[in-house]
C-alpha cells in the first residue's frame, strides 16, 4: 500500500467518522443562536472558536460533514443504482437499439452542465437537500453507465463469456455472473471519484443557496455566510474550505490507491 493510499484513507476516514459521530452526537447545538458568544477565538470550550451566530465551529463542521457525505453518498447510490444496470444492458446488447437509446440518453444528460440540471430542478421544486441529491445523482447516472459499458464491452469478446453462452446462459445471467464481478474494481474506483465530486457539487450548490437550507448546516452554506465577513473574520471562510479540501483530497487519493491495488495489470507492472 502506498503512502498516498494511507493518507487518503486517513483523511476520508476522518470525514466519515466526523459525519458518523455527528449523526448521534454534537458537542453543541447547531440550530440555536448565541450572539453573545459570536466570533470567539479558539478556547478550551470551543477549540476552533465560534461563528457569527455564536455557534461552535467544531459542531458546525461535524454537522456539515454529515450533510455533505449524506448528499454525496445518496447521489452515488442513485448514479450507480441506475447507471450500472443501464451500462450492463447496453453492453450486452451492443449495437442494438437499447444500446443506442442508453448511450444517446447519456449524451443528452452530459449536454446539460450539471449545475444547470440543479438549477432547473430547484427552479421548479425549490431548493432543498433532497433536490440537490437528485440533481447530483442524475448527473452520476451517465458516468456509471459509461464506465460499466466500457468495462463490459471487452469482456463480452472473451472466450469465457462465449463458453457461458455455449452453456446456455442468457445475456442477463452472464452480465450478473461474469461481467459485473469483473468490472467491480472499475466501479468501486469510479464510486470514490463520484463521491468526491459529489462533495464538491454539494458545497457549490449550497454555496449559491440551492442546496440544504438553514438550519441544516453545510460547508458550502458556511462559506457563503463567511464571504461577507471575509475582511474581518477570514478564519470562518478558511475552516470549512479546509474541511472540503481534506475530504475531497482524501477520497481522491483513496480512489487512486484502490485503482492501483485492484488493477491486476498495474500490479503486474510493478513486479
Amino acid at each position: 500500500m502506498s503512502w498516498a493510499f494511507r493518507i487518503g484513507a486517513l483523511l476520508a476516514g476522518l470525514a466519515v467518522l466526523a459525519a458518523g459521530v455527528g449523526l448521534v452526537w454534537l458537542p453543541y447545538d447547531t440550530a440555536s443562536v448565541n450572539i453573545a458568544e459570536r466570533t470567539l477565538g479558539p478556547s478550551m470550550a470551543h477549540p476552533l472558536g465560534t461563528d457569527h451566530f455564536g455557534r461552535d465551529m467544531v459542531s458546525m463542521l461535524m454537522a456539515g460533514a454529515r450533510t455533505s457525505i449524506a448528499v454525496a453518498l445518496l447521489a452515488v447510490g442513485i448514479g450507480a443504482g441506475a447507471g450500472v444496470p443501464l451500462g450492463l444492458l447496453a453492453a450486452a446488447r451492443r449495437g442494438a437499439w437499447v444500446d443506442e437509446v442508453v448511450m444517446r440518453g447519456n449524451d443528452l444528460i452530459f449536454a446539460f452542465p450539471s449545475l444547470v440540471i440543479a438549477i432547473l430542478i430547484t427552479a421548479v421544486f425549490g431548493p432543498s437537500a433532497v433536490n440537490a441529491i437528485l440533481a447530483i445523482g442524475i448527473f452520476n447516472i451517465p458516468v456509471f453507465a459509461r464506465v460499466a459499458r466500457g468495462g463490459a464491452l471487452p469482456l463480452w469478446t472473451l472466450d469465457y463469456v462465449m463458453a457461458a453462452r455455449v452453456a446456455g446462459k442468457g445475456r442477463g445471467r452472464i452480465s450478473v455472473e461474469h461481467i459485473l464481478p469483473n468490472i467491480a474494481n472499475l466501479l468501486i474506483v469510479q464510486a470514490t471519484i463520484q463521491f468526491s465530486l459529489g462533495i464538491l457539487a454539494e458545497a457549490a450548490l449550497s454555496y449559491v443557496g440551492l442546496g440544504a437550507q438553514p438550519p441544516t448546516a453545510s460547508w458550502g452554506r458556511m462559506l457563503a455566510d463567511a464571504q461577507t465577513m471575509i475582511y474581518t473574520e477570514p478564519q470562518l471562510a478558511i475552516l470549512p474550505g479546509l474541511a472540503i479540501v481534506g475530504t475531497v483530497l482524501g477520497l481522491n487519493l483513496l480512489g487512486d490507491g484502490l485503482r492501483d491495488l485492484l488493477d491486476p495489470r498495474l500490479r503486474r507492472m510493478r513486479m
Binding site: 472466450d159 469465457y160 463458453a163 452453456a167 446456455g168 455472473e177 464481478p181 469483473n182
Partner: peptide
C-alpha cells in the same frame, strides 16, 4: 477455445468453471 487465458473467468474456481455446463 484457443486462448488459454481468456477462456476462464479469473474470479471463478476450477470447480465452478468446469461445472458451468451443468446449467444445460
Amino acid at each position: 477455445f484457443q486462448d488459454p487465458y481468456g477462456s476462464f473467468d479469473p474470479r471463478w474456481t476450477v470447480r465452478r468453471i468446469v461445472a458451468e455446463p451443468f446449467h444445460l
